Simulated scan of single mutants.
Amino acid sequence: MYFAKGDPDMGGQPLPWNQQMMFNYAFQNLCDAHRILGDNPTLLDKYKGIMVASLAWFFSGGGSVTKKDSKGNDVYDWSYVVGDNTAEDSNHGALDVAGFARAYISGDYSITEDQMKTFGNMFVDVMTLGPKSYAGRVDGTSGTGYSAATTYVQSGYLFLAEFRSDAYEGMVAGANLVQGGTTTSTDAFSRFLWVKNQLAKKS
């Protein structure tokens, strides 16, 4: 997806990946609505096609690169927007990952388990620097602002514990979800419940 050519600031340039995910959330909701209602298969196919193209672009031509981490696992490295040479920051990366997870859960948008595991490897093997210590960028480096290192897991990354079950407990603890405790983060708690259920079904 691109900004309109007439946009005064970003005319004709690609949307950043987190903003593409914002649109994809809406397209996915529209697809679900038309599928349930059975009222407009033409629009359903149109919205689905836009979303599939957006997601596929990330893996082919959209700037993501598959690398090997220190453990020999495949990981993704990508930037905030196509054409940028700086690794995606942790904050926006969590939004990117959540968008892919949502599409994967649906099963309708050609996102595979292997692709999600590669995201999981990236978070566990590259971004996780130690207990409650996480890099500010997806390549393991840190900066300032959105790319500053954190002492907690951004909730979008919790989806990845399904594909790296060895890191499940550490990721949950890193999201400050403690047995017997409470949380005000509805997104972290709901994603924790989703992953817990998925892992229980696989056990």
Rank of each mutant, 00 (worst) to 15 (best):
K132P: 03
F59I: 11
N40I: 04
F23E: 12
L177I: 15
A135N: 10
M127T: 12
T183D: 09
T186K: 04
M171D: 10
Q115T: 08
D96G: 01
F123Q: 12
I105G: 00
I111Q: 02
N121L: 08
V97S: 01
M116C: 02
D74I: 05
T66M: 00
Q154T: 08
Y152C: 06
L160E: 11
A135R: 10
V138C: 11
Y2F: 07
K46G: 00
M1S: 11
S142M: 04
P14M: 13
N121M: 10
N40S: 07
T182C: 11
G6V: 06
G62W: 12
Y109M: 09
M1F: 05
D74L: 01
A33D: 14
M116W: 00
W194A: 07
G130W: 04
S110D: 15
K71S: 05
V65C: 01
G145I: 04
D125G: 11
T151H: 10
Q115F: 02
A175D: 09
F58N: 05
S70M: 06
K71E: 05
G38M: 04
G170T: 01
D45K: 13
L95E: 08
G6Y: 08
I105M: 03
F100K: 02
G6L: 02
K68D: 00
A167D: 04
G12F: 03
T144F: 02
F27G: 06
K201L: 14
S133G: 09
M51Q: 15
I36W: 10
T66N: 00
Y134H: 07
W57K: 14
D166P: 03
A167P: 02
Q19M: 14
A33Q: 12
V81I: 09
Y25S: 11
G62I: 12
R164A: 01
V195R: 00
H92Y: 08
L129P: 15
K201M: 13
M127V: 11
V75K: 06
T112N: 01
